[in-house]
Design a protein around this nucleic acid. Structure first.
Lengths: 142, 142
DNA sequence: TTTTTTTGTAACAATTTTAGTTACAAATTC
DNA sequence: GAATTTGTAACTAAAATTGTTACAAAAAAA
């Protein structure tokens, strides 16, 4: 489980905002659905807000989606919930020996392949909208 | 940096075994190139060995590749260095509220998309052989 | 054959990451 | 004015990651 659950929780939150659109989606209520602490929800909600995916106001209960569900992709959420948006999927040991041919060049040699693999993954996520996820949730229910 | 550096170190080790084929590739020597502790190298080497990518013997210095470099992919290494080969790339919160429509179905709804994204990433890795990596290392050197 | 070297692995430690919790100011609602 | 809610900081607990120490078993070297 290399990618932390903030991503899945982020999708959960957005799905709930849509499905429970009429209701009062406080962090407390959402936390009850996710089964976690309200502060964890607010923390992730804050990231979604900074990424422009949801609209919130201090003191005002709930949040609303900033865009139609067909225009929010899993990739948008993936990027939104990362601490450092630049940090790569694959870690590389940071101080290989520069006096060794392999040590000196391994980082550069891996960069291209690792970037391609990450891009392929992100591209798949970009092809899935919140709409699809919500449809799947509701379909399983019926 | 979601995927730990054992993967990159694994590729480093295999590359070094090939490039320094004539030499004496003890865990101590390899550790010097990676810039880590020899035990860390032996631990990863053990995983590579169990995956059938290298051949080693207790007490005998060094290791050799079990297959030609054109027949070892980054995906082989990726799978080799994972603790639990089954554990997925994307973590999902494990106890969402079953009394909520979203909580009850979010795991199933995410499974398909997450699996596809992971498969796309692994597929890219499967398209890169150790041969390509080594070529890149040597090319950067010249 | 004795000594040294090396692998393989267990046990432990240090550091970092992740998730959860407490606390509280600021804004809004009741 | 009292109660509720967001937003955020600070802290705690647990887990993962990486590095280290220790040592048996096997092989190589002396």
């Amino acid at each position: 489980m290399a990618i932390n659950s903030r991503f899945a929780v982020g999708v959960h939150i957005l799905s709930l905002l849509e499905i429970n659109k009429g209701g009062r989606n406080t962090s407390d209520y959402i936390a009850g659905s996710v089964n976690t602490n309200p502060v964890v929800v607010r923390r992730i909600m804050s990231m979604l807000s900074k990424a422009g995916l949801v609209l919130t106001s201090p003191g005002v209960a709930g949040a609303t989606l900033a865009r139609p569900i067909g225009e929010i992709t899993l990739h948008d959420v993936y990027k939104a919930v990362r601490d450092d948006d630049a940090d790569p999927l694959f870690a590389v040991h940071d101080k290989p020996n520069p006096d060794c041919v392999v040590g000196k060049n391994i980082q550069g040699a891996l960069e291209t392949s690792f970037n391609q693999a990450q891009a392929a993954m992100e591209n798949e996520l970009a092809g899935v909208t919140l709409d699809t996820v919500i449809r799947s949730i509701l379909q399983q229910e019926s």
